[in-house]
Design a protein around this nucleic acid. Structure first.
Lengths: 218, 218
DNA sequence: CCTCTTAATTGATATGAATCAAGAATTACT
DNA sequence: AGTAATTCTTGATTCATATCAATTAAGAGG
């Protein structure tokens, strides 16, 4: 299990401060599939993932989920909620067994006096913002074809590690849609799939799809 | 025209620092409809809106626009891009005549040594993050009906100030869709429209739509 | 007040992706 | 290996919303 000092965010604090923080940290154990917090709840703590992997998602009125992000320990979760007194914009669920450290917000806010701390916090927040902006782009600009082309281009190894089922839900589309579009990509000789190994045959075609949301010829 | 000191963000700096910053600020004049920066460009400056109103939007491959936010002076624009060396995630266009101050990023980064400055910057970033999270929610969770119910509930006066046309584009739907759904709302006695004044008759129905994406009966 | 322009409405059709429903192909389990 | 359980594929249908096209309504300028 990680400690506070393992997070780049807290590494700027001196040992004394760190000791205080660590002593005030409430550590909770979670089983796989358990929920850390629900979308819409209000928070009293900064949530720090000390061990395991969590998934953040939104739930639609129909009950389907919009996958946002996975986080691996060590990582602070829901950072911006710690500043604005707002509801969690997503639900946080463990994908493995793990531990969360709950840091009282009061204590967290006291750390802001430390310039190095607030600067590294700024950096961390900006990174989260980038994540959010990327997600917004994918969900509002990309077609399903473009989403698939994007993972194929940026992270093709995911097809070796996960089931198509799981990939579909990470891309916020149904497995049927993923299956159909992968077949289409195969037919257009953009890629080939042997067993679980995806080989990209035409990288330019992928770039074209990412830019235009459509396949070249048809 | 506003000055740096009018932004809460910069108000924490002492007069000396502020004078240096203000002197290094390149001020540009823009006409209505002119573009401050395009989505995909890289930046060298922090953009500070000193006068006027701007609009941030993304452009889809088809050429349609996804409206993100309007900002009124005085306000810092594209804050998080100033930290991460990334491309602008949106295009910035003036809706009025106005002025932008360009602050060299180097100078901006030097201010981070000032704790009060970095704390108020944190606050500002967190607010932007909230804006982004809200936008993501609207675009991924809300149906068109729910988007309309949401403006009716949170900002009904907008119907007196703007044309339906403009409202539709702020909600990222076509004017036809807005028109059709407003008629549907009228037929269900959720609201009435006299001239340009919208009166909400059934607030609970609006809440229901926001929560479920659907109208109650049918 | 009347034309001209702009905005709003209405209908028909198209589109992308979800949903529903089988079947086929893998993988896992004794 | 043989059966059961999962996962993947394929087809038919539905759904929400955009698009295209035409008409009506409203507002502005002379």
């Amino acid at each position: 299990m990680y400690k506070l000092s393992d997070l780049p965010l807290f590494s700027m604090l001196n040992e004394e401060q760190l000791a205080i923080m660590q002593s005030q940290l409430h550590i909770h154990q979670y089983d796989k599939d358990s929920i850390v917090f629900y979308e819409g709840e209000k928070n009293q703590y900064l949530y720090i993932l000390l061990e395991g992997v969590v998934r953040l998602y939104k739930t639609t009125p129909k009950g389907t989920q919009i996958h946002m992000h996975n986080f691996e320990a060590p990582e602070a979760i829901a950072l911006f909620v710690a500043f604005e007194n707002v509801e969690f914009p997503a639900t946080c669920e463990f994908l493995s067994d793990g531990y969360i450290g709950l840091l009282p917000l009061k204590l967290f806010h006291e750390c802001l006096n430390n310039t190095d701390f607030s600067v590294s916090l700024l950096k961390a927040l900006a990174q989260r913002m980038k994540l959010l902006a990327t997600l917004l782009h994918k969900e509002t600009i990309f077609s399903s074809e473009a989403k698939i082309a994007d993972v194929l281009y940026t992270n093709p190894s995911i097809f070796e590690r996960l089931k198509n089922n799981e990939i579909a839900y990470m891309l916020n589309m149904t497995p049927e849609t993923l299956s159909r579009l992968l077949s289409k990509f195969k037919k257009e000789n953009i890629l080939k799939i042997d067993g679980h190994i995806v080989t990209i045959l035409d990288e330019d075609a992928l770039k074209y799809i990412i830019e235009t949301n459509k396949m070249r010829c048809s």
